[in-house]
Design a protein around this nucleic acid. Structure first.
Lengths: 360, 360
DNA sequence: CTGTTAGCGCATTCAA
DNA sequence: TTGAATGCGCTAACAG
């Protein structure tokens, strides 16, 4: 299959390459007669324009980069699907990259994507200051920050109202009568996680419940941490915090607390999975022994034991909106600074009022 | 940020662009002294080679295409992660596309990817004959078929031993004492699904159990079919079979059978989720009223009610192997025709012997 | 209404 | 040990 070029088409149609280019791109008027000749030649030779060559001259690749921590995490999967669906409607393509929350990987990917002349970038940053990302933004590469912020990068953020979601979750537990409420949080560099801690604290404060540091537990919030049950993904230690426990260990520690909580707010979907495992292994029951409310819903949350009460985020819509906004930036259209998406409390069966004899 | 090119570097270093190119690519000897000058210039100007321009002349883009039905299906997500991890080790990038099992979308993506001069393609085909895919393969584009076959495309297939997996699943149910065993299968154009039906039939035959067509139920096996519980994905009808019921309806129909089965083999993860929902809505219990065995494991399968007995596939490894093989094809290395990966029966709690009074 | 020409940024052949 | 020159396939002035 020897490549057929615009030149071949031009020769066969007896016109110049310029004319062929123009009928393809509808970029100047061509008489109907020659237009048909060109079209016939294209058809006959089965000509496909070379997008790379075009990109070199138009200085655009119709390609965007999508940087996420781990596509395997259902949250980022749905986001990716939203991005791809929307970006595809504009004839663009998406290159996806997994950073595993590793600044070094993030940096390397950014370098490669820039070399590839992507037209835009949607990134869930690791949260560590990235010189390269800052420079890229300053260099006017269209960028959308997704889910999280990152230092010194001036780009629109598409995210959910995390603080409010956490506040709602915590308040719900308080309304049920809980006084000792724990929180399973992620690493401090992830802005989303910090906002969720903030919301948690605000709810407690408003209810006049003292904030107890021993009930605020940190864990590695990533999806592929530790030996999972069902998927043979590789185990990857946290890049900039090797000692960060996974949610399984973290929750076990919390339950070993002298005065363990009667309820816990878990700040992402994967940690919720792990927490449920930890509970089961401790022969404790949910919600009888411990109420659990998770952040981020999941198809299987309805079928787990017990069905999970969660804060649901409009994930797919997040991805679509990010892509929409990015396209506008690319096309140099004016964009409104985006507002935060609302979240929703989905009450199922993993929370109930605390026992009277509170120390189990 | 005005682009700095190889020319700028050459000028600053006082050499020709050829020399700069050669120090970058280590493609001919350059004296240490000038090499250092060039390197210094690159550093000073913060020069990044333009991969598009390079691609135009080397006729390679270091990019592959990945076509899957729906990245949102955890099976394809893990595969995608495997592909990306491996492909990235070779400095390649992955463009991902969702076909939704739609031949038209598949065709359009293939066209665009070809125009983009991808160096290789990993595709989970819809199964409908694709003229374009056939021509691409004939045109010596390196292609790997993933999970499924497709007519007339001569390309290595990376897949699991589906027939054997289905056989094992069915045999397990038979050993438990089941005689009326149903199967929830997908559309007939998907080769994987047909192999699973084959394995199911073989197990029955060997056990001397007659095959009953009314127990073989077809459903739309896709992930984003119908209004899901947790994720706001759009509802998409089956492209070439608008009337195909989803697993929820299909299972309900099966349970309405005059002599319903005492056990059922569900042929993919998403249909298992739906089946569980259908059961719950019918106020039937698993495994007391109906034993269920699923194909493909899932992180949440362990936590569902009941914990699911499944056939587990090495998904991540599938993706990695496909990428490995594709790289070899791209590099024109010799490749062995791949063999099928074995699957594994994971016994949990969703199956038990049938009741004595078999008609509930 | 259409053709000629000059690059886009780079790798590479041929000379030196 | 290095440069000059050519062209990858295409678009976009500029001419006519």
């Amino acid at each position: 299959m020897t490549k057929v070029t615009i030149k071949d088409v031009a020769e066969r149609a007896g016109v110049s390459t310029a004319t062929v280019s123009h009928v393809i791109n509808h970029t100047r008027f061509v008489s109907e007669e020659t237009r048909q000749r060109v079209l016939a030649a294209i058809e006959a030779l089965n000509y496909q324009p070379n997008a790379i060559a075009r990109g070199l001259v138009t200085n655009s690749t119709q390609t965007i980069g999508l940087l996420v921590p781990d596509i395997t995490n259902p949250f980022f999967t749905a986001v990716a699907r939203g991005v791809e669906d929307k970006i595809n409607q504009h004839g663009y393509h998406t290159i996806f990259c997994n950073t595993d929350e590793d600044p070094a990987r993030e940096d390397e990917y950014l370098r490669l994507l820039a070399a590839r002349q992507i037209d835009g970038l949607i990134v869930v940053p690791t949260g560590m200051r990235s010189e390269r990302l800052i420079r890229l933004a300053e260099g006017n590469l269209p960028i959308i920050l997704l889910d999280r912020e990152t230092p010194e990068v001036a780009a629109p953020l598409i995210s959910v109202d995390n603080e409010s979601g956490a506040y709602q979750a915590t308040q719900y537990l308080i309304e049920l009568g809980h006084q000792r409420i724990g929180i399973l949080a992620g690493v401090e560099t992830i802005s989303t996680m910090e906002l969720r801690v903030d919301g948690y604290k605000r709810a407690l404060k408003e209810a006049g419940i003292p904030i107890e540091e021993s009930l605020i537990v940190r864990a590695d919030s990533r999806f592929n941490v530790g030996p999972l049950a069902a998927v043979d993904l590789p185990f990857i230690r946290h890049p900039h915090n090797q000692n960060m426990p996974n949610a399984f260990q973290a929750l076990k520690n919390l339950l070993d607390n002298e005065f363990p909580p009667s309820a816990i707010f878990v700040t992402n979907n994967q940690m919720t999975l792990w927490a449920l495992h930890a509970l089961r292994e401790s022969h404790l029951r949910c919600p009888e022994d411990l109420s659990i409310i998770g952040f981020d819903d999941h198809d299987w949350a309805l079928l787990s034991t017990p069905p999970l009460t969660v804060i649901r985020q409009p994930i797919y819509q997040l991805g679509q909106t990010a892509a929409d906004l990015l396209m506008k930036l690319i096309q140099q259209q004016a964009v409104q600074p985006p507002s935060l998406f609302p979240v929703e409390l989905i009450v199922r069966e993993s929370c109930q009022p605390p026992r009277k004899n509170s120390s189990r």
